[in-house]
Design a protein around this nucleic acid. Structure first.
Length: 421
DNA sequence: TCTGGGGTCCTAGGACCC
DNA sequence: TCTGGGGTCCTAGGACCC
């Protein structure tokens, strides 16, 4: 059996842990640049704030209803996530951290009389006690069904106590008939539309389709999903592996028309990718750089372009990657546009120490110790204190973060104060 | 004025090989 | 009128996830 544990409204719940007065109050958390809503408490959902809502369009609604607004505080959410995962890992021999707020637990070799439902309640109680984060638990014989069970646990908290187990075929069929097709894990917008057109409206009807049709129209992935929903496990826990691509991309706080500004951003993104590469001890053999204008501004001329460059040698040097990124940018940059977003993606990795030397050109060997020193210093005194000269030394670039909460758990100067009377 | 960021997997089709 | 067969590798694009 598998369990899917999902933190309820995770980012909003993290903020609430440190401001308990916000219990039962509506909360939203915004994306980078305070752009759009990426997390909502139940109260905010009830007030009609949709996922992805642009914050400027909803400003009045926020104010009118006293909705508490937060900029995203990833240092906090990441740390809280670690705490939740640590507690979860004490409840099962195997666990897969599926995302910042979700984990699969696998119960293999448990006695058949072992009451998993009770175990689920214990997990929920302990996580909330240890971290302050409320969770929902779905239990079932496959991962896809555990996802379904989790939805039920979340949707009917009074009846389920936030824990639901699909452990009989009757429950499985009832659950699948209840679940709209677009809410099935692995069915996105495209497939949902095609399935609706075929009169498939819920998960149960999906499982009644012919295997051949599913295979032809939704590939092996769709067929696997069908099996999983039928109760036949096809997906096991996945073990963490190195990334295959690494990206750093950002929207700008405003439109940029000056090439120098964009060069600085691209340099910074490349250096950030390089640091992530060094962390997993990989070197990149290719780099992609893209720029585009603001797609929402229909009154302005649009331009969007990307370029992928093969590198002459594998590298994870910030200096070299920033240099290549700049060359790539030169090829795609056009004067006369108001740019809103850019990004750097590195790919085609080889391990740091394959020992393979290229015939004509190689990464500067001296960069290795230089980068090592840079990483050490930045780790000790703050993530980006040491920068390349091509980066924004004067720190003129700022992400909009007007409603940022303190780094309660990761910065000693911002640790919570408790006043005693 | 203001609309996020970072990933994975699969398939079809083209280039190329013998 | 008729123009083989079988394979690998790479890439772009589509679909999905949080």
């Amino acid at each position: 059996m598998f369990a899917l544990v999902d933190c309820n409204n995770f980012y909003a719940s993290c903020e609430r842990v440190f401001q308990p007065r916000l219990r039962n109050q509506p909360i939203v958390v915004l994306s980078n640049n305070d752009g759009c809503v990426i997390a909502r408490s139940n109260e905010a959902k009830k007030l009609g704030v949709p996922m992805g809502a642009p914050s400027f369009e909803y400003k009045e609604l926020f104010e009118k209803n006293n909705i508490h607004v937060f900029s995203s505080n990833y240092a906090l959410y990441g740390d809280m996530s670690n705490r939740v995962m640590q507690t979860l890992s004490t409840f099962a021999p195997e666990i897969e951290i599926y995302s910042i707020d979700e984990a699969f637990l696998k119960f293999e070799g448990f006695d058949e009389h072992f009451n998993l439902q009770e175990h689920g309640y214990k997990i929920r109680y302990t996580v909330t006690k240890n971290t302050g984060i409320p969770i929902s638990v779905g239990i079932a014989p496959t991962k896809a069904l555990a996802k379904v069970a989790n939805k039920i646990a979340k949707k009917f908290p009074e009846r389920t106590g936030h824990v639901y187990s699909i452990d009989t075929d009757e429950k499985r069929i009832k659950a699948l008939k209840w679940l709209p097709i677009e809410d099935v894990w692995g069915i996105g917008r495209r497939h949902a539309k095609r399935l609706r057109a075929k009169n498939v409206t819920n998960a149960y009807e999906f499982t009644q389709l012919l295997d051949g049709w599913v295979r032809n129209n939704m590939s092996i992935v769709g067929l696997r999903l069908k099996r999983e929903l039928e109760g036949i496990p096809c997906l096991d826990l996945e073990t963490p592996s190195d990334k295959k691509i690494i990206a750093t991309t950002r929207s700008f706080d405003k439109n940029y028309t000056d090439k120098v500004q964009i060069q600085e951003r691209v340099s910074t993104f490349a250096a950030s990718c390089a640091a992530k590469l060094r962390q997993q001890k990989s070197c990149a053999n290719a780099i992609l750089v893209f720029v585009h204008t603001n797609i929402h501004r229909h009154d302005l001329p649009q331009y969007s372009r990307s370029i992928t460059m093969k590198l002459p040698y594998p590298t994870h040097s910030s200096i070299e990657l920033a240099k290549f990124a700049k060359q790539a940018l030169d090829k795609i940059y056009r004067e006369g546009y108001a740019y809103k977003k850019a990004g750097v993606i590195v790919m085609d990795f080889t391990p740091e120490d394959t020992g393979q030397i290229k015939l004509f050109e190689n990464s500067n060997p001296r960069h290795r110790s230089l980068m090592h020193a840079m990483d050490q210093i930045n780790h000790a005194i703050g993530t980006t204190k040491l920068k390349l000269a091509s980066q924004d030394i004067k720190r003129t670039w700022k992400m909009r973060q007007e409603k940022l909460s303190p780094h309660y758990t990761t910065r000693i100067s911002e640790v919570i104060n408790v006043k005693c009377r």
